[in-house]
Design a protein around this nucleic acid. Sequence first.
DNA 1: CTGTATCCCCGTAGATACTG
DNA 2: CAGTATCTACGGGGATACAG
Lengths: 126, 126
Amino acid sequence: MVKNELMKYSCPLGKAMSALGSKWKPIIVLVIKDRKLRFGELAVRINVISRKVLTDQLREMQSDGLVIREEFKELPPRVEYSLTEKGLALLPILYLLEEWETKYHVKDLNEQDCNLVGKEIEKTVV
Amino acid sequence: MVKNELMKYSCPLGKAMSALGSKWKPIIVLVIKDRKLRFGELAVRINVISRKVLTDQLREMQSDGLVIREEFKELPPRVEYSLTEKGLALLPILYLLEEWETKYHVKDLNEQDCNLVGKEIEKTVV
DNA sequence: CTGTATCCCCGTAGATACTG
DNA sequence: CAGTATCTACGGGGATACAG
């Protein structure tokens, strides 16, 4: 788990992008939303991510104050992830980004279909 | 100039992040703002970026429809960059991201000062 | 079930030198 | 002035196997 070294400079935007500028973080935020999800649920919903990477991303988001990790000492183990207030505050901005992309979308070749948000996801995405 | 391969899947958010999820693109958008800037002016304002990388980023942003490149056939050569409508539409979202980061900012060690936006930049930044 | 531990690939950034 | 052309290094992301 190497700390993201992007944006060592501390422009607000630079810091913001370092917190969510990676490949998966914005998606993880959008998938968690306002509920609690177990590790396995996250892995299933974003089924193209490897478990190692998912773990890494979650750890970084945790130390960036975006997600809360709750570990239940049970057998079998259970861990639930949810968004912090900071993470929740990010949601509307991410929705704006989606709108922006959708609005200015240029038809692209070889697109795979994928509806991550905008509709409730209760099954696999991506 | 290799096309960004992040986010091959086509979730709106994925596509959005592929258009501005790189290290410099959001900053470039914020620096250009609503004016035209010459290549050299951009390079000076973001003085820690190498010219090669700046060129690469601008080319990608051009093909993503974020910036307009105007080349004047003069000597010495002059090239002006400005934001497209799509790029301009991104500005308010980036400002929101800045606000978000600023609001939830956790005091960090070894910060370098840098005020990229929020105040008018007419000199070097970063 | 929820992760680690390794290993490897490949893209991106960066430095430097050169060009029309 | 506004880029190219190379070359290199780094590190994130992915695959796989294993562990508590």
